[in-house]
Design a protein around this nucleic acid. Sequence first.
DNA 1: TATCTCTGCATTTACATGCG
DNA 2: CGCATGTAAATGCAGAGATA
Length: 497
Amino acid sequence: MVKLLIADRDSKEREGIKWLVQAYPIPFDQVELAGDVEELIRIMEQETPDVLCIELDMVPRDQWEEVKKRIHFYVRRVIGLTAEATFERATQAIELHAVDLWVKPISPDRIKRMLNQTVKQIAEEHSRPMFAMPATYTPISYQTLFLDYQSLGENRSLILVQPEHTERIPLLYQFLQEYPFHKQPELFPLSDAVVCIFPRVQPDERKYFQQEGHRLLNEWAQRYDDALTLVIHLALDGSISLHHKYVAAKQALETRFFIGHQQVIFVDEYQEWRRIDPFLTPEEQREWIQMLSDFSKERIQSWMHQQFSYREPPFPEPGLLRIRLTSILAQLRRFMQSHRLHEEAMYETHYHRVFASVLYSPVLFRIVQDILLFIFDLLEGAQERSLQGSSDVLEQAVQYIEQHFARSDLSLAQVAEFVGRNPTYLSHLLSQKKGTSFRELVAQIRIGQACRYLKETTWTIQEIADRIGIRNPNYFSRLFKEKMGCTPRVFRDQKNG
DNA sequence: TATCTCTGCATTTACATGCG
DNA sequence: CGCATGTAAATGCAGAGATA
């Protein structure tokens, strides 16, 4: 199936060549005609003609680059046509890699000869195996990709191409099959990516793939309005097996978590992950409680951006980072509960959506964005609720206590004032609804925090007493023993011993 | 020996509770 | 929701034991 497209503004000229092709035995299976640039582009995209005869004068200067790019992409052979035998036209023909330039009026003989020759060449290309490899290469297959066969991947570069949406793999595969690489790769479609294996390029391999990679990204983005990520493993060291290249590429692909889609990643520039402590420290937890109860969008936003913008490798391990993000979600969950937002389906669904994003989204800044939007949503919802006066007094009180337990002068009166109730009434509520008195509650929270300090710090018992809001260290010891069954010292020794 | 930790006891004060 | 009142918590001081 060989297709010809004739693009000429003059309809007589178009019809004339078409007639010639059909009247003489020039073996085109299909002949299309285009009268202007729009039509030319549309037919190229739909039909991907093998041969294009194009009147160079029809393309306006400002569209030339655009048209040229598409011709390179869709068409295998170009023949230029022009009424004016100028230097500019000749240059254009060269830019298109035209096999011939016809100056009007054109002799039918030349047309026949040139078209015949071109069709013959194309037929030969077709009859050869699609990706003919030099005989020196050992045939490669899925086995060499997935199993560690020695010496099979030598001299080959590997590109792992992953689209943003995996359902586009078949489309991507087809795209890559038709894509005009300078050197044709062998293609291995996988469930979430396509692996391209290239013969070795010399001398400047990195630069070559850099250019080829960006060209590929742009073409795909332009055609399908979608982003790809490319991971390139250069041939470089001939001792690395194809399998290892593939595994390394998969690992380097994770870098996308930090730098986003539409990127070309070189495996040899990839660095090991940095280990981080994924959990929020008690101070950070308190900071979150504070920011949320202050409804401070600005502080939350800058906290998130400061915490989660990584520009330079080494990047922290994505898995640990996800855990850290879920710790933040836990704070949000509490906030939802204390403002009764979890009772509303809307917030509940949103919460689960964000949770899924934290677990599975391939790009960090999207997760951060999702979380921030969710927080803003929650803050607005909570504000609305508190205006309606429906937020839970008790939860508010508990939160207030959790934030201020470190102050030794924390009193029932302060908390009552904060939630806008009479101290006596609040005391009532606490013992009725929570089954515990104000003093008891504060003590629980303080001792809980003390346990953490005893385990995690080397602070003296006096200092800890002070930090949890108990001025008298003697009393702290006694209280601790009463609640925990042993004195603070013994507790610390047991945990650290 | 100085410092830290824990216990006992007296005193003050903040809280829990019953009732209007 | 708030007042009055008995009660329990918190404090301060003294001193003993543990630890470096």
